[in-house]
């Protein structure tokens, strides 16, 4: 899959959550944490969110720290709530995202968040929202979901 298109299209998808945060940069993990909270508020709770630092500015260490918590939370959600393990999937390099806003790695992390959205209790709402998006974006989203489905093992 074209990983640069992946990041671009999934960034568009993430914006459909209409989350009002001061900094819309995806690489600090703040917006992602809000998206995850919207997807699964019981799991990505207020307590979990309180561990995400919001005032990271350009401090890459804090960004990476946030992104590590995001990735860990996502993998725990897959295992504990969805009963799935993601095997043989090239896990996102959160250092590369935090340090240099690596588009390909960002795409992989957003892909995992997409997997949470289309498998969660409210998945109907999220899938229908995707179906209302531009066709080129839908294709990328479909490919991203298909790739994840191949990597899921119960």
């Amino acid at each position: 899959m074209d990983k640069e298109h992946l990041s671009e299209s999934l960034s568009i998808w993430v914006r459909t959550f209409n989350i009002d945060v001061p900094n819309t940069d995806l690489t600090d993990g703040v917006l992602m944490s809000h998206v995850l909270h919207q997807i699964a508020p019981a799991f990505f709770s207020e307590t979990w969110m309180s561990k995400i630092k919001t005032d990271v500015e350009s401090n890459w260490r804090l960004k990476v720290s946030n992104l590590k918590k995001i990735l860990k939370g996502i993998l725990e959600y897959y295992a504990e709530v969805l009963g799935q393990q993601i095997t043989d999937f090239h896990m996102p390099d959160v250092n590369a995202i935090g340090e240099r806003a690596d588009e390909k790695e960002l795409g992989r992390l957003l892909q995992l968040i997409l997997g949470c959205a289309v498998n969660c209790e409210e998945k109907q709402e999220y899938i229908q929202r995707i179906m209302g998006m531009e066709e080129s974006v839908q294709h990328v989203v479909m490919n991203a979901i298909q790739e994840l489905m191949q990597k899921e093992t119960p």
Binding site: V81, Q84, V118, K123, E135
Partner: peptide, 29 residues
Amino acid sequence: DGPKANAASEGVLANFFNSLLNKKTGAAS
């Protein structure tokens, strides 16, 4: 042939996302 290709593409997307809606998952089942 453009409209036919578009319709086919839309069909693929609709089929995929509809099957996803009906897929049982750990959370939704």
